[in-house]
Structures are given as C-alpha cells and as structure tokens.
Computed example of a mutant assay.
Amino acid sequence: MTARGEVFLAALGPDAERLHPEILAQMRAPAGVDRAEGVFTVAGSRFGRLGILALPVVGPRMLVTRFGRDVPFSLRTRAGRTSSGRATLDTTREFRFPGTTQFISDRLTVSVVPGLVRNLLGARGRVELIEECSVTAQGALRMRTRRIALRLWGRRFALRGILGISVDLEDGWDEAQKRRTIEMRATNPLVGTILEYRGWYRHRDEDQLTPQ
C-alpha cells in the first residue's frame, strides 16, 4: 500500500527517521485522496496582476496574482506511482483570497538520484524544478531548488542567472498547537521574492481545526 508521503520517504531514505515523529507518522499513513486545511498568515505575490502576463507561457494553476494576510487555504493530495514504480504526489493548493479563489498544482516524482525529487508545476507541467529534500535539526522537511527549466514545444530550456528561480520550502511541526507549519519563498536574483506563503494546516482526519 502506498503511504501518504511515499515520495518524501523514498527521497529521504534513512534520513526520514530524523523527521519529527508526528510528521513521520502522517507521511506513513495510508494514502488516498487526502485533504488538509489551514491558514496562511501571509500568502501570494506582490506583483499582483502582472503575473497574468506569464500565463500564456506557463499555463494555468501555476501563478497567484493576489497577496493577502490570514488567507484560508486547503491542500488536496493524491499519492501514486509511475509505470516504472517511482513514487509520485499530486498536490492542488487552493488559496481563498477575499472575493476570489486561486490554485497552484504540481506533481512530485522521486528522482533516480537519492535525495532529489522532480517537480512539474502547473496544470501543464511546463515548469520543472529539481529539488533537494533534507531534514532540519528541528525535524522539519526542507526542499530547496537545485535546477529549474521551462518545457515548451517538446524541448527543455534550462533557466539560469537572472532567469532562474530559487524555491525554499520548510514543512514543520508546531508542538504547542499540534499542527503542521509551512513556509515557502520563491525568489529571483533580479526582482527578489516573486511568491511566498507561510502558515499552518491540519489534515482533515485530525481533530477539528483550531482557530488562529
């Protein structure tokens, strides 16, 4: 049976044992179509509607064109495997900004290189990240970009220098509130932060959400 966090367990290998016990237990839980809900204290892009200009290139469910605070959100994930047996994880993030709801989706696949995962962003998977998975001293899962590329017209274009994007994500555990924490920042060397979010969440099979 596939575990909820099989893609991370496979990438981390023996280092998975260093995850916080609560995170490790949740990752080892049997997979299905899993849902989590929480609140981002900060979420979105300060570039606003300028992000729409990139839509013809990157496709839908790739960008957020709003910025807000105390933004409710949900995660819907489905763990699976490729035809060759590699672990996968499909995720949709739903940002419920006042007056509009926006989505980001991606597919993670375990790489042939230990410690790395391949992440295809957006509904069309046109942006490809190669990310390194590690465990922090506090037992959080950390993911950092090693390479990024744009996939168009059957070709793959590496994005480097001022075209590059660095993503740093940390998924931890709040011992006092008994809930997961999440913090992500995507930056470009020329314009700085282009997307960020940080907050907390709980899986729907846990206790009822505690108000912020």
Score class of each variant (00 low, 15 high):
Met1Ile: 13
Thr2Gly: 01
Thr2Ile: 14
Thr2Glu: 05
Arg4Lys: 08
Arg4Cys: 04
Gly5Leu: 09
Gly5Arg: 05
Gly5Ser: 10
Ala10Ile: 12
Leu12Glu: 02
Leu12Met: 03
Leu12Cys: 09
Gly13Asp: 06
Asp15Ile: 09
Arg18Leu: 01
Leu19His: 03
His20Lys: 02
Pro21Thr: 06
Pro21Asp: 04
Glu22Asp: 11
Ile23Val: 11
Ile23Trp: 00
Leu24Val: 04
Met27Val: 05
Arg28Ser: 01
Pro30Arg: 02
Pro30Phe: 12
Pro30Ser: 05
Pro30Gly: 05
Gly32Asn: 06
Val33Ile: 11
Asp34Met: 07
Glu37Tyr: 13
Thr41Glu: 12
Thr41Ala: 14
Val42Asn: 07
Ala43Phe: 04
Ala43Ile: 00
Gly44His: 05
Ser45Leu: 12
Arg46Cys: 09
Arg46Leu: 13
Phe47Thr: 08
Leu50Val: 15
Leu53Gln: 06
Leu55Cys: 08
Val57Thr: 10
Val58Ala: 09
Arg61Asp: 15
Thr65Arg: 12
Arg66Ser: 13
Val71Trp: 00
Ser74Cys: 13
Ala79Leu: 11
Gly80Val: 02
Ser83Glu: 15
Ser84Gly: 01
Ser84Pro: 01
Arg86Gly: 01
Arg86Ala: 10
Asp90Lys: 02
Thr91Glu: 10
Glu94Tyr: 11
Glu94Val: 15
Phe97Asp: 04
Thr100Val: 15
Thr100Lys: 14
Gln102Val: 07
Phe103Asn: 07
Ile104Ala: 04
Val110Asn: 03
Val112Asp: 14
Pro114Val: 07
Gly115Cys: 07
Arg118Gly: 04
Gly122Met: 14
Ala123Tyr: 06
Ala123Asn: 09
Arg124Met: 02
Arg124Asp: 15
Gly125Arg: 08
Arg126Cys: 12
Val127Trp: 07
Glu128Cys: 10
Glu128Ile: 10
Leu129Pro: 00
Ser134Trp: 00
Ala137Gln: 11
Gln138Met: 06
Gln138Arg: 10
Leu141Trp: 03
Arg142Ile: 00
Met143Phe: 12
Thr145Ser: 15
Leu150Met: 12
Arg151Asp: 05
Arg151Ala: 00
Arg155Met: 13
Leu159Arg: 04
Leu159Pro: 02
Arg160Met: 04
Arg160Pro: 00
Gly164Glu: 04
Asp168Leu: 12
Leu169Asp: 14
Leu169Cys: 09
Glu170Ser: 08
Gly172Leu: 02
Ala176Ile: 05
Gln177Lys: 08
Gln177Trp: 03
Lys178Leu: 13
Lys178Met: 07
Ile182Val: 15
Met184Gly: 12
Met184Phe: 03
Ala186Lys: 01
Ala186Ile: 10
Asn188Ile: 06
Pro189Phe: 06
Pro189Arg: 03
Leu190Thr: 12
Val191Gln: 08
Thr193Trp: 15
Ile194Gln: 03
Leu195Val: 07
Leu195Asp: 01
Glu196Trp: 08
Tyr197Met: 08
Trp200Ala: 13
Tyr201Glu: 03
Arg204Tyr: 05
Arg204Ile: 11
Leu209Ile: 08
Gln212Lys: 06
